[in-house]
Amino acid sequence: MDEGFDVGARLRQLRQERGLSQRELAKRAKVTNSSISLIEQNSVSPSVSSLKKILDALPVSISAFFAGDEHSQPRPFYKASELTEIGDGVLSWRLVAARRPDRRMSVLHERYPPGADSGDEMLEHDGEEGGVVVEGEIEITVNGEVALLRAGDAYYFDSRLPHRFRNVGDRECVIVSANTPPSFSDGGEELHHG
């Protein structure tokens, strides 16, 4: 997660604003009580899929979670250091313009180290997504169809189809992707392709 961002404090704030105990949030998110406690204490960094499950139970979008209470004026350019890390410590997903109000799409700079995987569970959510492999290779499964994409190759699909991303190569894979509705959207609750 973003080093300058206090994930634990933000989760605690949102949980308390909704009047939920750690136990109740854990029950709704189908995670253990200790998971919520450890995340709020910043003792563990949640995987993207775990954080998504917890935020869906609030419900709060990933975008709103990382934007916090900040509102900034829209601007056209962002330095690499200004991208918001929403990865899980293994996968790196750096979101462009995370704090931009009324953002209608998500643009991500994604890094998958060798062996990295978006998760055992196939992902499904409203919207469309696409991307271009910049370096390395990635195995993408969409609705049972599997392809190995290399630098220069691209993908575009309906995100409601079950999908998964895996780096089966021996070097890092870098992808620049976009999805709409913005980042992690599923009927108003936000998800991402992994």
Rank of each mutant, 00 (worst) to 15 (best):
S34R: 15
V134C: 13
G89S: 05
D170L: 07
T180E: 06
E190C: 06
G119I: 02
E145Q: 14
R150K: 15
L14P: 11
K79W: 13
A26F: 09
N143L: 04
S118W: 04
I138G: 05
I175Q: 10
R171L: 12
E3T: 03
D120A: 11
S37E: 10
Y112D: 06
E40T: 04
L91C: 09
E190G: 10
R12M: 14
R99Q: 00
T84K: 02
P46W: 07
G136Q: 11
H192D: 13
L55K: 02
P76Q: 06
A64P: 01
D120Y: 03
G68A: 01
F165C: 01
A80Q: 12
Q41L: 11
I54C: 06
V168N: 11
D102C: 08
S45D: 14
S21H: 02
V107W: 13
D2C: 01
P182R: 05
N33A: 11
H109I: 04
L83P: 03
D120Q: 09
F184G: 09
S61T: 15
K52L: 12
I62G: 00
A29R: 05
D117C: 07
I175F: 00
S183C: 12
D2R: 04
A97Q: 02
E135W: 04
E137Y: 00
T84D: 02
G87E: 04
H71V: 13
E110A: 08
K52H: 09
E190V: 11
S92I: 08
Q41A: 15
I175K: 05
L83D: 12
L14K: 06
L161G: 03
L14E: 03
R104N: 14
E70G: 10
A26V: 07
L20E: 02
L123K: 15
G127A: 04
R166A: 03
G188D: 12
P114D: 00
H71D: 14
A67P: 04
R18Q: 03
L149E: 03
G127F: 01
S49N: 15
V60P: 08
P181F: 10
E85C: 07
S21E: 10
L83H: 13
R23Y: 11
A154M: 12
G19F: 11
E17K: 13
E3A: 14
E172V: 11
H163I: 02
D2W: 09
S183T: 13
L83E: 11
S35Q: 14
L149T: 07
M122K: 12
D88C: 04
S106L: 13
C173A: 15
